[in-house]
Nucleic acid binder design. Sequence first.
DNA 1: AGATACCCTGATGT
DNA 2: AACATCAGGGTAT
Length: 412
Amino acid sequence: MGNLRFTEWQRLPISLTELCINTTLRCGQSFRWRKSGDDEWSCALHGRILSLRQDAEFLHYRAIFPSKPNHLLPSPPPSATPSAAESPSPEDDDTPALIEHYFNLRPNLGQLYEEWAAADTNFKEKAPKFTGVRILKQDAWEALVGFICSSNNNIARISQMVEKLCTNYGPLIGHLGKTPYHDFPPASALTDAKVEQQLRQLGFGYRAKYLYQTALMVSDKGEAWLDGLRNPESPVLGAEPCSGGQFTDGGREGYRTAHEELLALQGVGPKVADCVCLMGLGWGEAVPVDTHVWQIAQRDYKFGKGKHSSLTKATYDAVANKFRGLWGKEAGWAHSVLFTADLKTFSERLVAKVGVKEETIEVKVEQEDVGIISKTEEKVASKKVKREAEDEHQAVEAQGRTTKRTRRSRAR
DNA sequence: AGATACCCTGATGT
DNA sequence: AACATCAGGGTAT
């Protein structure tokens, strides 16, 4: 360490309705982003540490590269490795291209929200407090592993498990302060026969076997196999998009093929397969139906009776088809907005707290954060107001909304 | 189709 | 304080 190449902070113009990182990075589609400071998020990505901040007009970013090619990185042919010792000029830094790719910035999210709202009154009602939720283009292998870990699990522990996977099997990219940042390990790093037991040791439980066996299969099929299941409209970084086929309520043929192929992997059922299709392979019509979505379908879309009284495979398909019929080709994106709106982490945005009658009730209720509250209460159980300053990122978020909403947040 | 076990962790209840 | 119970982005049998 110490041999690091810093780039200066740069910025990309983008509105909070097109991308809100505070929501998108916390809604359970990616498990590796960490807060690296007040209002700052960081993650090891494509051989660098990428740090982000966001205000109402710009996404600010900075990349930190190892100064020398890391010998721990999966080694490409030496000719393909750019001379990393050169000091980077902002012009040939590929970080903006990486950001556009990773955050999937091409689709016009504001317009999509309008279309979904026009087609669905429930979406229209729920979405305004959850703008800027964008489906990421994550690495397919990483998505596969993350969502295998997600079964019968919670987001906090999934993140913890992914973290352990990276620190134990992934290449070290560098440090931010004292915190090490490892990139995600390739499948080939998990094929040793000892891996299953090691993962159990690390607290993966029954998922240890799933991960080991899936790593074997993916590794055996070749590293190109997974990306071969991609939506051709959403190719890997640097490739040219082409048509993805004819859309129906059941999804495009390529999507159905990808879904079916993924089901052959250990620990991958319909829900995990859809998560990988949506967030790792670029199939916008994939609609993962988990317990949250099932509850939403029952509460707001009249499922849960008669033939579809329980979440069988047939019900699963019926729910997903219903949403594809309602929201169209990017149904998975719309689904993610409603899923996010249902997460306990964000529940404070929905209901104004029945504030205890004190001078503390003037706190803007829509800017609370459950996670931060619980942390705060560990330390000072009585002072419930202190959190306001800790949560500026949500203030930024609110700032981007209409003044109408800012007013209303004081209403109780 | 429906029922059960599966690993573990933090939160909540006695 | 110690211990029981349970839910948490499902899947395999």
